[in-house]
Design a protein around this nucleic acid. Sequence first.
DNA 1: ATCCTCCCCTAC
DNA 2: TAAGGTAGGGGAGGAT
Length: 878
Amino acid sequence: MQPDHRQLSASNRAHLPQPTQPNSFWNDPRPSNRNPNFVRDYFQSSRLHFIGSFRARYEAMMVAVAKRLKVNPGSLISAAPTSSCAERLIVHIDMDCFFASVAVKRDPSLRAKCIAVCHGGGEISSCSYEARKFGVRAGMFAKDARKLCPNLLSVPYHFPTYEQISIQIYALFHDYPGVFVEAVSVDEAYLDITDTAKDATSQAGADDLVQSIRSRIVRETGCTASAGIGPSKLIARLATKAAKPNGQLRVRPENVIEYIDTLKVSDLPGVGWSTSKKMTQIGIETIPQLRRKSLSFLQTNFGERQGQTLHDLARAIDSRPVEPLKPRKSIGAEASWGIRFEENEDDKLSNFISDMASEVASRVESVGASGSKVCVKLYRRKPNSSMLGYKFLGHGPCTILSRMYNIPRPCDWATLRKALCDSCLRVIKETRIRNDEFRGLGLQVVDLKFGELRFDHSGAPVKGVKRIDSFFNVSNRRAPASQATHGQLRKTSPPNDVDTASKAKGSSDRDEVLLEKEDEITPKEDVRKQKKNVSVNDKDTEIEKRHDKAQPEEDGVEIVADNRIPNNGADKLPDNHGLTSKIPFGWDTAVFKALPESLQAELLQNNRNQTTTSRANTRRATRDETKSAAPTRGASKKRASSRTRQRNVARRPRRRQRAQITMTQFADIRELRDKGNDVLDAEEFRCRPLKECVELLQDLNHGRRNSAFVNRQRRSGVPTEKRKSVSFAEANSNRLAAVEETLEIPSPPCMSSDYDSDENNRMLHVVEKAGVEHTQIYATEDVTDFSDKLYSWMRRTAVDVKSGHVELVRGRLMECIRLKQLDEVCENVRLLHRFAEGDGLEGWRVGVNALLREIGEETRRQHGLDLKLPPLFPSASV
DNA sequence: ATCCTCCCCTAC
DNA sequence: TAAGGTAGGGGAGGAT
Ligand SMILES: Nc1ccn([C@H]2C[C@H](O)[C@@H](COP(=O)(O)OP(=O)(O)OP(=O)(O)O)O2)c(=O)n1
Ligand SMILES: [Mg+2]
Ligand SMILES: [Mg+2]
């Protein structure tokens, strides 16, 4: 059995200096400047890292299994082809209080007790249903939860067991032929059982099928799951919630509206803390209330897209298909706990940044991806933060800023790592953040492409590697199939040039960000496309932890002006003693009178001038631009060519206008006021037009939030048409159309001829070797076993699924031919291509070829038309 | 108009 | 000892 995680942690830091006073946070060995292995240990202990990185592990597992099956994962994990079905059967299945259940399974004496899974007195990740009766919830601190539930027991995490059970349930899901699986999270998935449950030969109806799946989960994992069954993801998901714990609920199409009308808007997926606050203030609490609002009203208040979505959800319109894993658009890592550096610890800070960059580069490399941009996200302590010391090691009140930089593509591990480091150092330099303000770092690689150059760990190129996104091309491909599978390999340029070039020129100067070397290491044609656009945004963001849709957790929060730029009083309003004689109509007299005279004066002045532009705003913009951006920019340049520098200067965007206040900020301000602090000093007040401030104050006093909060009316009064609002239904059909469009009927995709099992095995090796760096920490011996089981089950399932599809498509085709819907015939043949792609199963090939012949003959016979449908697999014997 | 960057929100 | 990650959707506003 695995050792307890606390012992693991202890052994990990056994080599560290031990505290002289036990339990003293002055000697806490965990923070970043006291633990040389901080990044590794932190991720190993972080539950959010565990659940956040689940998808990446799942993806790697599926790819590995597909490799062993010698099938293209794109076809194995294809989207459920049921979008055209009049009535789908979607299941949402979710483990009951997952982490807590696992704890009970590991220690049955905990059964029926109030337990919470957390680190000591820390944030609760999951708690038993017994504890929930007392109001205990995920996201609370155990200390606070114990006030609600004095008997609450804290139990530690055990990630390897979560991982093992997670793999178990997914293996099990994949053991049902014809069931499509979409992974949602470590304990939760959608299943499309339309075909399986409706199949006449299958005696099991939907309820029985789901019941049997759930029984199997209990039997094989010892933990319970709940499930919802409905005609859409939305309904299935909502039904799961109602069914919990350890139950299942089916909502039939005719009862859907009736069912959702019993719910509140905050029950809708996608409606979180902020949106639901917003809704409350507008006067929307329930689904029927939401449905009564017009589309344009919702779009005005919540934005074009979210408005449309809310409009649809209120009517239970949701045709999102159960989808396979989609390729990620970004890969990144972030740490904002335990980050402490003293002023004299530059080297430790560099090491931390380097470790984070290595981590991200490894994650990118291990899946064979490449990006064109990196994004740096910095947590900076607010000047008045109460979390100065080492007591809790949280980041405390912070401002967050993020910046994006271009990087060359392709990019090997070392180059990427350095690009990430350099970008980070550059942001630090330009914002003049001090070590002791540094509270967290996020690094991301974005605009990902898959299947570019891959390198093994010796730096030598791995030749002949197939594009990884061929795994995903069912849903993602833009180029025609032929291009996706053929063209890419040949297009790949020799990696060594890039590699050595960047190493040789890059290692000399640590302070230079990659931007300055781009021209040297990037192929010409790419250089032209690159923009060195660096923009500053120093809008403060108050980071708050919150419970599920609950009020933000208090964090000793005070909103204070950002002091990155020395505040010389430039923001302070002139202290003119003005008159308060006339208060304009509609203004709150009490509020107005409470304002300092200087504000009152300026307010009146503004009102007289009918000025909507803000002097405060203008002032601020100017100040930021001159004091922040310009001088630092100059100071950070060491080796930039003057041409590059000029370009960067020229392209720096102008200071942004202050954004609309958010729900979070509003709540913070109100909290400040309630604590008796000077609200007018709040950052959000000092940088906004006075008029807006007064509106805010009025809202504060009235406990509502109306005026400044609702989105500003569009200038024209009419929603712009530029980005057409697309509902789920439209989006899905569009997406499907886009996919189908890329498939050419006449040219069969290349099949077995380009499948080189040696090559793929070699790649698999690399993937696993690299992947181990991230997966290893949760792995037990059992995981391998279950991976094997998954493999064998899926092998069987794959065959069944394939033959099922032949029959499915055959039925549709014959019907289409009868109705002389030849376009439909073509569509369905495209569908066939989709399923067939990359498949290594001989029986399937023969079946498809036979079917195609059959279709051709049938069309000729019935309509005298020659459809010219070449066999998909010319090489397969019939 | 459309693209891009930065930010906010959401889910687990 | 309180191990606050990961990824995507989408909006606002400046750049092009
Ligand atoms: N804020 C959160 C939410 C969830 N999790 C982890 C612990 C949960 O066990 C797991 C699954 O999340 P769920 O939302 O499914 O919650 P539970 O499974 O714990 O409870 P439920 O029975 O409501 O599904 O993810 C977490 O660490 N922190
Ligand atoms: Mg759950
Ligand atoms: Mg869940």
